[in-house]
Design a protein around this nucleic acid. Structure first.
Lengths: 251, 251
DNA sequence: CCAAGTTGTCTAGTTCAATAGACAAGTGAT
DNA sequence: ATCACTTGTCTATTGAACTAGACAACTTGG
């Protein structure tokens, strides 16, 4: 061991970043070791008391760090038993009938969709072309955060014609589902026409919303959904947490 | 503006990262804008009260953020006048006579060297070859943090023969200078024999010591110093904060 | 010199991170 | 069934972050 000059160097001090809370440092430390593959899926973390002792920290502080890991979808805790690593990913099947809530429910999880923001804006050329509108036409823009079992899965920016669906935001905020929102407008069956998948990294905003660090990988999914008669309904640009989702494409 | 669902979204909320203090977020924000070149050297920051208003935050919080920027060597504050950006770098001339304290003093700053850690260890083949020892020979290893005007400039790992300089660590801790430490052993004139410069990025440990973010650029300086008779004395591996230092090589 | 503007310092109060200890509730193996 | 072990919850305390307001000390330009 290196002998350190400043003071008694418990493992606690080696973590301490100025202005960053202790529990956050511990959570980040464990996230690294988990993401780097040191723990297999389902592996058990050391008991809280042991982690606390190792870092020279109170058990409550460790509990808070673990709660953060849970919110990030990295671990699951079982009372009386222990804390277990979750590195398996949600299989997200992309096909003609792609409905977030159905996919998540089929996997045995609780789906949730929250409207983070919305506005009316003139359509860019790109968006207008997708929706079959003139460039500059009024469109509704929705920012939607989707989660499975309270763990954020994706953030999506969705555009719809403001003329046809003027109150889409208000209705979505109540019903929390695109499918049910369109149902209000009499659209009963809509289908995915095309999907474009690329990759990138989280920026500060998406990282916050998805409870990820900055510079984590994301899957960027652009898509167009059309009505039964082929008329464009909505187009979307979703950013999926690649640490938590795998996209399955039918072939 | 996007209408946000959760709550009133002042600019303050857009910064808030869970587990990170407000002042730290503000400091990081300003560090980014400074490092990205938005401010010229010597440019004046907005007054504290204006920054506070902009973020919807108390002035004391802003003061703390600015103090952090000062500690990182990015700004200098002048009472009654304002806060000014410092992006100029310390010119660090590398020659036969390379003495940290002399270089810093010549630039009109206050030099400081602190021993962060030390130990005896067997020399690696590389280190042994440099020092003219057998591989595995006992060497003293020092971890030294150097600063100019309290701003960290470099961290260096230095190796000396443990047989010849057994108490190097103890003496350095008192005298805080390699030159004066060697003087105790009767070495009055020593000279740089070779210097090897490469580049890299901060790891978590060096970032903390140098008060830098992780993944900031560093200059890696490996070197060998010899006595007047050509006998190897010490070899070193320094990591210099590239944001704060420019190396000047005589030709 | 004067006045406006800016940084430095002080006091006071609220909120929350972290510590400390104790006990309840649940699990798993003997 | 019992016992050791683990997670969940509760209370209480300390210290730091952040807010709020006021005033002193200093700089700059007119």
């Amino acid at each position: 061991m290196l002998t350190r000059t400043p003071r008694s160097s418990s493992d606690k001090n080696s973590l301490l970043a100025r202005g960053v809370m202790l529990w956050r440092c511990i959570a980040d430390e464990y996230e690294q070791t988990i993401l780097v593959g040191k723990y297999e899926n389902g592996a058990k973390l050391p008991p809280e008391s042991e982690i606390a002792a190792r870092y020279g920290v109170n058990r409550h502080t460790v509990r808070r760090a673990i709660a953060e890991l849970g919110a990030r979808g990295l671990v699951r805790t079982e009372r009386g038993s222990g804390t277990y690593v979750k590195t398996d990913k949600l299989d997200y099947r992309i096909g003609q009938r792609t409905r977030f809530s159905e996919i998540v429910a089929a996997a045995g999880h609780e789906a949730e969709g929250r409207l983070q923001g919305h506005r009316h804006e003139p359509a860019s050329e790109e968006i207008a072309a997708r929706l079959g509108l003139k460039a500059g036409a009024d469109v509704v823009r929705l920012e939607i955060l989707r989660a499975a079992d309270r763990v954020p899965i994706s953030v999506a920016t969705t555009w719809l014609s403001a003329q046809r669906y003027p109150d889409a935001a208000k209705i979505f905020r109540q019903l929390r589902s695109i499918t049910r929102t369109l149902d209000r407008y009499g659209i009963t069956g809509y289908a995915r026409k095309w999907t474009r998948i690329s990759a990138g990294f989280t920026d500060a905003v998406d990282a916050g919303r998805l409870r990820l660090s900055v510079h984590r990988p994301i899957l960027v999914v652009e898509s167009l959904d059309v009505a039964a008669d082929g008329e464009p309904i909505l187009t979307s640009r979703g950013r999926f947490a690649a640490d938590r989702v795998a996209l399955i494409v039918e072939s």
